[in-house]
């Protein structure tokens, strides 16, 4: 193989590791099929019909703190790594912090490579910065985050 820096920047070690680790992917098929949840809980299903990437993500909030993210999904390495990183990063954040993080992540993803992903701001999610150079893959990276955004809105609505 000849090196390809843009592709190698997208498929960093940490991304490939997370794609295998799938942190938080312990939501059962039964739970994913449920339609009503406890208070402080939100659940969203996202599907990318182009490639079949799919995720059902459940988020619980305790007071003002994100208690946990559990998900069930299948898809490419970018979508799975992104969900895994999100599940790790979000835990313990305040609702407002996660909302801000999702906004910042979206901004970087939509930048077509023009923004540098700041590790100070995005944590491990900064490793996904290389995806923004590949418009066709931005949806893959955003899948779990869009689901989390919806679940967060549900969970934090009294």
């Amino acid at each position: 193989m000849q090196p390809n820096s843009a592709m190698d920047a997208m498929y960093q070690e940490i991304i490939l590791d997370h794609a295998k680790l799938r942190s938080g992917s312990d939501l059962s098929a039964e739970e994913a099929a449920e339609t009503s949840y406890d208070a402080g809980c939100g659940q969203v299903h996202q599907l990318n019909p182009v490639c079949g990437d799919e995720i059902t993500l459940r988020l619980s909030v305790d007071g003002n703190t994100v208690e946990s993210i559990h998900w069930l999904g299948d898809g490419c390495s970018i979508s799975m790594a992104s969900a895994s990183i999100l599940a790790q990063e979000a835990k313990g954040m305040t609702v407002e912090e996660l909302r801000t993080l999702i906004g910042q992540f979206r901004e970087v993803m939509r930048s077509r490579g023009s923004m540098v992903a700041d590790e100070e701001v995005l944590g491990d999610a900064a490793a996904l910065g290389g995806v923004s150079k590949f418009p066709a893959r931005v949806k893959c990276a955003m899948l779990a985050w869009v689901a989390a955004e919806g679940a967060l809105a549900q969970a934090s609505t009294p």
Partner: peptide, 14 residues
Amino acid sequence: GVHAHDVGQYLDAQ
């Protein structure tokens, strides 16, 4: 072990 989307990305880079 590799999703088709990742396969396509690798080939595109070649």
